[in-house]
Design a protein around this nucleic acid. Sequence first.
DNA 1: ATGACACATCGACGGTCATCGATGGAACCC
DNA 2: GGGTTCCATCGATGACCGTCGATGTGTCAT
Lengths: 117, 117
Amino acid sequence: MPSTKRIERTAEPTVTCCASVTADALDEAEATELAALLKVLADPARLRLLSLISTAPNGEACACDLGEVVGRSQPTISHHLAMLVEAGLVTREQRGRWAWYRPVPAQLAAVRDALAP
Amino acid sequence: MPSTKRIERTAEPTVTCCASVTADALDEAEATELAALLKVLADPARLRLLSLISTAPNGEACACDLGEVVGRSQPTISHHLAMLVEAGLVTREQRGRWAWYRPVPAQLAAVRDALAP
DNA sequence: ATGACACATCGACGGTCATCGATGGAACCC
DNA sequence: GGGTTCCATCGATGACCGTCGATGTGTCAT
């Protein structure tokens, strides 16, 4: 196995996404792309995590604080946070022992715009 | 008071739904409600159907025209359309042999607003 | 009445997903 | 070094979902 480093760098900020649903008829590729992003959002645990990160006092939230609030086990929280990072909705930064997460408002806005006329 | 009457055409009177993700931290109930709506949208076939209905020339689309475009079997199309209706994103009207579907822009806007600051 | 058509429902199958316990690695403190 | 904390990864499991063929129901035309 190649050297899969433990500290992965976060996904690059590709924020351009997704044709509009109401502007013109989506083809299968456009629909699949937008559906993949919406599917990440379509989970209560991930919505709560994104909400907590987005409303965090200093614009960032520590994973250590998120677990106890959302009410899932630690592996589950880690799993959901990884999905949010991969979808470009949040970024992750490891500082010492703690992992800090920041929202990416532009990506959420991209989803919102895809649902606009 | 201005006389701007609210003319509701759909069966559901109030389309107000779902607290905002970025405004304040969502609790489990709010997150579950919003996630349920997003889950309906998070499928390529349903996104294409909603897109086709929303961009239909006369503001409505016949199910007979939708099937061949989306490329799924007739039962599958019927299944997805029923989910869109139940979610309040489109309305269904049977006229003779054909079923006609109309978009409910307010419901889509409600989802959009739930993703807004 | 008979057939053709449009659509919904049913039942089943294969794939995906959310969740958890167990494990492992990294950083910090003594 | 030894112990502790934080977090990611792995493996398993139970539930859910998209899809299709078969079938049922209602409508229209002949």
